[in-house]
Design a protein around this nucleic acid. Sequence first.
DNA 1: GCATACTCTAGTGAACCGATAGGATCAGAT
DNA 2: ATCTGATCCTATCGGTTCACTAGAGTATGC
Lengths: 152, 152
Amino acid sequence: MLSKKAKYALKGMIVLAERYGQGPILISDIAAGDHMPRKFLELILLELKNHGLLQSKKGKGGGYFLAKPPNAVTVGQIVRIIDGPIAPLPCVSRTAYMKCDECADERTCPIRLVMKDVREATASILDSATLADMINRVRSIETGKEALNFAI
Amino acid sequence: MLSKKAKYALKGMIVLAERYGQGPILISDIAAGDHMPRKFLELILLELKNHGLLQSKKGKGGGYFLAKPPNAVTVGQIVRIIDGPIAPLPCVSRTAYMKCDECADERTCPIRLVMKDVREATASILDSATLADMINRVRSIETGKEALNFAI
DNA sequence: GCATACTCTAGTGAACCGATAGGATCAGAT
DNA sequence: ATCTGATCCTATCGGTTCACTAGAGTATGC
């Protein structure tokens, strides 16, 4: 389950992606647009900055802005920073692998086999979805309406 | 992330599936085989029973057994009972849908669109994997060894 | 030097997790 | 009837995480 923290992080990043190239944006502005608790968002943005996804400027005219273009930041990166590994079990994680202590033979653990499939499927979705993708996807729904459905 | 409780539930169900048709199995036996805390497992099996996945018999010669054949019980069912909805966000859940309060237009929420993909992918894996599938998958690895790899 | 805005450390109440305790209840054997 | 073996049920507990808040610290620009 995605935490609220991660959800706020994603929302914040999307706002910043939409205004990419327009200079620093105030925390307050980001929070106000999507009804997020300002102080909480403050922590989150800081964390994303410390992981290199954001840059900031202090003082008047300050704020946050993306460290990389929107097509170079994926949902997977953001979720991993805030919520930790994507894998449903530590023993199938690539970024934070840990052996289960009870599991005798990892290679033949039936639960592991299924959860590995889940991990693979989830990771491939989250790691291929960039901020730019998300924005475009919404725009095409908003402007083209149900056009895509007919195209299929 | 899958809870330990859900993991124990899956392990327990697999044990019961392997011995399907052999009458009731003791909680203690199930717990001992996989090093699970007996009392904790007791709660879990009870919960699975109350949701119709297991049946039980009290007194001497008692124990737990599957209410349905192993090919009629999926991982998804078990996980949902123990850990709740599979969806990463309530607003993309089919079994426990809940609107997000902040989300103005659900149809164009970019986060929702991505998480819906994740839900779909995860659910299709978990809902198609039965206890019988898991057992067979392990057996074919154990007996056929690396045969499958060569086949690819 | 003062207002502005990010930076950092603590802390808090509520909920959840993993596990245990102990009695209640029921089925079968004697 | 009574005893034994097993599940059934409720309560509780220590620890951790979650969602959020408070407030002091620090750099920036005018």
